[in-house]
């Protein structure tokens, strides 16, 4: 196991270098000119050159790339070009808000969707199952904006059940602002997740071990919970782990609409401002999280299913 982890960690290095190269190339090809951008509306050629030097954009590309890699590896991204704030402080202040939204959303979504999917799978083929399928498909078809706009308008503004938007940095105060965004976050993934898990569970229901269990006279409940759920853990882990990077980097639209000062909104603004240091930091964090959680998933597969061996 240790050998596996070390090897997989080492594999990450070339992948991260590749990501560093791609972000660097994309930025240089598709981004604007940050020096001209920083020089503002009264730019002069002289000022632009000064800023280019100050930002370290005047050297040859390979030198710039070297610095880019160095920053990415040392996690020293300096200050944002657009806001002049330190990127580390921007990330620390954003990560807390983002995770306060995404972690409960993920947990609640998983609990509800797994429970619902098991329930629906249990009644497979019935009218209830078919109706549920249609409802799930309908839920899936709405754009996320519909949930946000409608939720905010009807539940917060009209019904007055929640504050319209806002944030309180204290742990106790923030929840009143988080409940509606979390509910909407859960609704957003409900349809898709229930459909997926239902398929997974139904697939398991057709397995030989279910037939064996039934022939032993086990009750449906025991079969569903003890056998099917456990066997379906691998796809569940895959889904949950795939979502983990998003849990940390936040949810752009929900954050923007509910005034939650998270990382999603910060990244979006950075893209709009060609704020390369922030984009670089967020890309790198996203990439590392993705790779780390893939590794975690592989390890978890082995934990939940003894047939899987990590080598």
């Amino acid at each position: 196991m240790a050998k596996f982890i070390i090897r997989r960690t080492l594999y990450m290095i070339p992948i991260l270098l590749g990501i560093a190269l791609i972000t660097f190339l994309l930025f240089n090809m598709a981004g604007g000119d940050p020096a001209a951008q920083a020089a503002g509306k009264y730019a002069t050629a002289e000022r632009i050159e000064e800023i280019r030097t100050e930002l370290g954009l005047d050297g040859p590309l390979y030198v710039q790339f070297g610095r880019h890699v160095q920053q990415m590896l040392t996690f020293d991204f300096g200050r944002s070009w657009a806001t002049k704030q330190t990127i580390s402080s921007m990330i620390t202040s954003g990560i807390d808000a983002s995770m306060s939204l995404t972690v409960p959303t993920l947990i609640i979504t998983q609990i509800i969707t797994i429970a619902l999917a098991l329930f629906i799978a249990f009644f497979r083929g019935t009218l209830f199952d078919k109706t549920s399928l249609i409802v799930c498909l309908a839920l899936l078809s709405f754009s996320s904006l519909v949930y946000i706009l409608y939720g905010q308008f009807s539940l917060a503004f009209n019904a007055g059940l929640f504050p319209i938007s806002g944030w309180d940095p204290s742990w106790v105060g923030r929840w009143q602002y988080l409940i509606l965004p979390i509910l909407i976050g859960v609704m957003l993934s409900l349809g898709g997740s229930v459909l997926f898990y239902r398929t997974v569970f139904i697939d398991q229901l057709h397995q030989d071990y279910v037939r064996t269990a039934r022939s032993k006279g086990l009750s449906d409940n025991v079969i569903m919970y003890k056998h099917i759920l456990r066997n379906a853990l691998i796809p569940i882990i895959t889904v949950v782990v795939a979502q983990m990077p998003f849990v940390i980097v936040g949810s752009l639209l929900i954050e923007a609409f509910f005034q939650i000062p998270g990382l999603g909104g910060m990244t979006y603004q950075a893209i709009n401002n060609a704020d390369f240091p922030v984009i670089k930091a967020m890309t790198m964090i996203g990439a590392i999280l993705y790779l780390v959680f893939q590794l975690v998933a592989d390890i978890l597969y082995a934990v939940v299913d003894p047939r899987v061996q990590v080598r």
Binding site: I108, L161, P163, Q176, L183
Partner: peptide, 14 residues
């Protein structure tokens, strides 16, 4: 828990 959440929101903001 979902229902509780809704009421929790209401008690705070309403």
């Amino acid at each position: 828990s979902a229902i509780c959440l809704i009421f929790a929101g209401c008690t705070n903001s309403c």
